[in-house]
Design a protein around this nucleic acid. Structure first.
Length: 204
DNA sequence: AAAACGATCTACT
DNA sequence: GTAGATCGTTTTG
């Protein structure tokens, strides 16, 4: 029998508009394998950052050293620091286009004991319920910026159980994006593993 | 060279 | 709910 989660999502999955990629990432599985073992978590919350007309996107004011990966080929990781922590994005669309999807929260599946050590808590809910928490549980830092997620080595995203449209909801909009025409943040209806921000009431 | 900022988290009430 | 921590990146002088 084939190893679970062995098959990575292909470049064609990522090389689409970031909103579609974001929605389709719900239910897929982030996997990291190293000498110690395997860690896996089901993605339950995402956020798209557009190449155009999106002031909240790191790419909005053009190419810089930090956001260079956003302009690379689809399927690469874009990892950046924020408040002395890290966040993981997947790059979308074609090379030269600065768009990506932020992985905001996930449901731990494998390697939970190790995540508990790294996050210094045994509360399942607290392991990956936020973009920086997730990077903590998976030990992702700037060294992973630009990593090719489509090769299925060390760090990748595998297809999971698809999420029915009825079980996908738009996450509350915040700040400058409250007036965005289309939803950019998505999460599953089951709120057990979502970030605190996603579980806040919309409109508020 | 200095300052401001931030796609966040934790602790606390 | 809100305040404060925290530090690399970007912007400004």
């Amino acid at each position: 029998m084939a190893e679970k989660y062995a098959e990575p999502l292909a470049v064609s999955f990522y090389a689409r508009d970031p909103v579609s990629v974001a929605r389709d990432l719900l239910g897929t599985v982030l996997v990291r394998r190293d000498r110690v073992g395997v860690r896996a978590a089901r993605i339950v919350e995402v956020e798209a950052y557009l190449a155009n007309n999106d002031p909240a996107s790191h790419s909005h004011r053009g190419l810089t050293r930090r956001n260079a990966s956003m302009f690379e080929q689809a399927g690469l990781a874009y990892v950046y620091t924020i408040h002395a922590k890290f966040c993981l994005n997947v790059v979308t669309e074609s090379q030269g286009v600065g768009s990506a999807v932020l992985i905001r929260a996930a449901q731990p599946l494998e390697g939970v004991a190790r995540m508990e050590m790294l996050r210094n808590t045994t509360h399942e809910r607290q392991l990956c319920s936020g973009p920086a928490k997730l990077c903590g549980a998976f030990e992702l830092d700037l060294a992973w910026d630009g990593w090719d997620l489509t090769r299925g080595e060390r760090l990748w995203i595998a297809a999971g159980q698809s999420v029915e449209a009825a079980n996908i909801v738009a996450s509350p909009r915040i700040g400058i994006r409250q007036n965005a025409e289309a939803p950019l943040r998505f999460c599953v209806r089951d709120s057990r593993f979502l970030s605190r921000r996603a579980t806040r009431r919309p409109n508020g």
